[in-house]
Simulated scan of single mutants.
Amino acid sequence: MWSPDRRALLRAGLTGGAALALSACGFRPALKAGTEQRALRNAVSLSVPEGRLGFALRETLESRLGRPGAAPAYLLTADLVMVDSGLAITQDSSITRYVITGTSRWALTGPEGFRPIEGVSEGMTAYSATASLFATRQARRDSEARVAKELGERIWTRLVAELEAREG
């Protein structure tokens, strides 16, 4: 005797419903072939700060944009500023929690006829101070690296969104 698999029917219904809902709202894949966003892949040279945090930012951007070829058509410049401030202060004026706020001003320039895209991206994270100076320093370094990576993701997301808006 045949018994339908309810899970398969439910999965098919949900998949079809999701596809119908996305098509009704005007959803279009941002990175489909032939779009300007896709043209950025392996065509962007990066100018980011040197050092540990610049490396984290570069690594994230390259994971999204790809490594540039021999003659990249675009140049993405980005700076990186980190500000560390106390968040939780005890009665004896000891800081037990810190907030790191990172800011990056960036700009994408390209070949003649390409309108530059500029923006400012911000990210934030926090870490706790411990009794161990080494552990506190390591927590700070990890937090700064997280913010640099987050800024890379935010820059990439803004680039894709701006290029999508231009194609309209």
Rank of each mutant, 00 (worst) to 15 (best):
M1S: 11
W2N: 01
D5E: 14
R6S: 13
A8E: 15
L9E: 14
A12I: 04
A12D: 15
A12Q: 13
L14Q: 13
L14E: 14
T15C: 03
L20C: 08
A21G: 09
L22R: 08
L22C: 05
L22I: 05
S23D: 14
A24P: 02
A24Q: 11
G26V: 07
A30L: 15
G34L: 08
G34A: 05
G34E: 06
T35Q: 09
L40H: 09
R41V: 12
N42Y: 06
V44F: 11
V44W: 10
V44A: 01
L46K: 03
L46I: 12
V48G: 05
V48K: 03
P49C: 03
R52L: 09
L53I: 05
F55W: 10
A56V: 02
A56D: 10
R58E: 14
R58V: 00
E59G: 00
E59H: 10
E59N: 06
T60M: 13
L61P: 14
E62M: 10
L65N: 01
L65R: 04
P68S: 04
G69D: 07
A73C: 05
A73W: 05
Y74K: 06
L75E: 09
T77A: 04
A78Q: 07
V83E: 15
S85Y: 06
L87W: 08
I89P: 00
S93F: 15
I95K: 02
I95A: 03
R97Y: 02
V99D: 11
I100E: 01
T101A: 09
T101R: 10
R105P: 09
W106P: 00
A107Y: 02
T109I: 12
T109W: 02
R115D: 11
P116K: 07
E118Y: 04
E118D: 09
E118H: 09
G119N: 08
V120H: 05
S121T: 13
A126P: 00
A126L: 13
Y127K: 06
S128W: 00
S128R: 00
A129H: 02
L133R: 12
A135G: 03
T136Q: 00
R137N: 15
R137K: 07
A139S: 11
A139P: 05
R140W: 01
V147W: 02
V147Y: 02
A148F: 04
A148V: 10
K149M: 12
E150R: 06
G152T: 11
G152W: 05
W156I: 01
T157F: 10
L159Y: 06
L159P: 04
L159C: 07
E162T: 14
E164Q: 15
E167K: 12
G168W: 06
G168Y: 07
